[in-house]
Design a protein around this nucleic acid. Structure first.
Lengths: 337, 337
DNA sequence: ATGAAAGCGCTAACAC
DNA sequence: GTGTTAGCGCTTTCAT
């Protein structure tokens, strides 16, 4: 088994000291252009790669990024992660994955990780970080970037939840609906990004349309298809059920559709349903929705991280645009086709 | 910002040398029981944690495990990962995530990673590792464990694809179907585990039932709901379409159901459909399927890794049981209810 | 059973 | 601009 190629090897072949080689590779100033070239060429030929361990131990970077995410088996989080991982990998950064679900996980994560300087940065994927946690990370000199949400004053990539929600509700309003329900999804442990903006959008849209907001038309459930189904059942139990329903996410919307079908009601003939996300299933089930670029959010966050770590500017927060996707689950009220 | 707690601190307080402290913590032999106790207690009080970097550099373990997975945004892979991550984290191991999709990714991964001894083990999640790659890893002293598939002679956790497929097809046979189609899903880049066992099961089940296998009843498509829909369309184009269809996965089955619905056919009245996996959507859409314990496979693999790394035995390969889940998408042939 | 000493591969002062 | 020196925190010979 051939020995590792070390910095010393590169330095020797390039005819310089390890220190200079390190500087050349690290892109530091005060290195003659010619030297830098030569060292880099040799390193390339030897396919030399720095040892993150040694580097970090000597006071350098770790070349690792921690990714914190509340779920892994849901499409949204997976897609976010996929976009992020790809960019990070291309930038030569390793991804340390931390699924942080409940409060115990959180505490564990924020206590252990930074204390050992395992990473240069942490990316919060649709993960809310509180002020104390944020401060802790910052104090340890770890960069913070958020995707699918925001973290205080740090760089982020997200969508405008209010705008997205309005696209959905406005669509229902334009179709002529006046009795519009909302199935509001919350995360019980507050562990994932809470899209309160999506609820606000509902109120704003109704207000703009001159429709009074009736609390009974809002069903609050936990995130999930089954919960969405239950929320819809609640709305159907009203003396006067809605003719259209806006769900916080496609999964929730799909659950609502199931309830409607089981109740013998037609979608959109009797009740229109719209979600948010454009989950792959939405296309399959012909669900109208508001598309958000998920992979892209992850990718952009990755680029921000790579940028800051290579000394550049990560840039400010970015809000990516969303887009109304009209499919077969929405139509005019009372259109019993 | 308070300094890190180092091994030296622990040693000093315990009144021993760093060397002894290291041995005590590492669980090495030739350390007096009393000493070991004392050192461990002190380490605990100080909430000391070894620096993986320093440890690895000095010739020890890295405390890291690489997880290789072909996809991240699909439920199956996410669930596998979720189970694995949880166990690994509890065992104090960090997870380095590598999404390896196409051939270029593969090459990159197998060249870079082991060369730098970044990890103690690699877990292949539903990821086929070829012999050369396997040899490379082994040669570098990295443990290998597979979940949702197998890798040569290494420990693995998986299901019996043939058995699972038979549960599905046998169910259709028992319902009285004689003309049974199969929508066979393959991964174009061979990047994910190829469940050829699921195809074999089809032939075996038909043979056992005395039903001749007709090649035209098998539609081969790439993995995915849209592709499943297309496969179903192909089968419907036959002079004599099947009365029941067995799909390699729930997503594919769901696509098939969509085609049937669009064609105005009833499920299971006109055509029965069954998948494999018990994807969360299967319950939502009332799809009959064969359940496989996905998270559990990841978790078991995690335990195997933790076991080998702590000096124990990982154990042999394990096949977890699957279970037929009868829902509303399957019924007797010609039962136009 | 324990300690002393020698690095692992790299980077950061500090000289020149 | 470049080399020299000194460690980072740990594990492992080799002594004792």
């Amino acid at each position: 088994m051939d020995r590792e190629v070390t910095l010393a090897d590169v330095a020797r072949l390039a005819g310089v000291s390890p220190a200079t080689a390190s500087r050349a590779l690290g892109g530091h100033p005060h290195v003659a252009a010619g030297t830098r070239e030569r060292v880099r060429r040799i390193a390339d030929e030897l396919s030399y790669v720095v040892s993150p361990d040694a580097s970090r131990l000597a006071g350098g970077r770790t070349g690792r990024v921690a990714v914190v995410v509340p779920h892994l088996s849901r499409w949204y989080f997976g897609a976010l992660l996929e976009g992020l991982e790809e960019v990070l990998r291309e930038a030569g950064l390793d991804v340390l994955l931390y699924r942080v679900g409940d409060a115990a996980d959180r505490q564990h994560f924020f206590r252990r990780l930074p204390a050992r300087r395992k990473v240069d940065a942490v990316v919060a994927l649709a993960f809310p970080v509180d002020e104390a946690e944020r401060a802790r990370l910052e104090e340890m000199g770890v960069e913070i970037v958020a995707a699918g949400g925001q973290v205080a004053s740090h760089p982020y990539v997200s969508i405008d939840d209010v705008a997205a929600g309005r696209q959905a509700v406005d669509h229902l309003v334009h179709l002529g609906h006046r009795r519009i329900g909302m199935i509001e999804a919350v995360d019980p442990e507050q562990r994932a990004h809470q899209p309160e903006g999506r609820s606000r959008a509902y109120r704003l849209a109704l207000a703009d349309a001159g429709i009074p907001v009736e609390p009974e038309l809002v069903a609050t459930v936990e995130w999930g298809a089954d919960e969405g189904a239950e929320g819809m059942a609640r709305l159907l139990g009203l003396r006067e059920p809605p003719t259209a329903v806006y769900a916080h996410s496609d999964e929730v919307a799909l659950g609502a559709v199931r309830t409607l079908r089981r109740a013998g009601l037609r979608v959109p003939g009797d009740v229109s349903v719209i979600g948010i996300d454009d989950h792959p299933l939405a296309a399959l089930t012909d669900l109208s929705t508001v598309r958000q670029p998920v992979r892209e959010q992850g990718a952009r966050a990755g680029r921000m991280v790579a940028a800051t770590l290579s000394g550049g500017e990560a840039g400010e927060g970015v809000l990516l645009p969303t887009q109304l996707v009209i499919r077969g689950s929405t139509g005019p009220p009372g259109d019993a086709r």
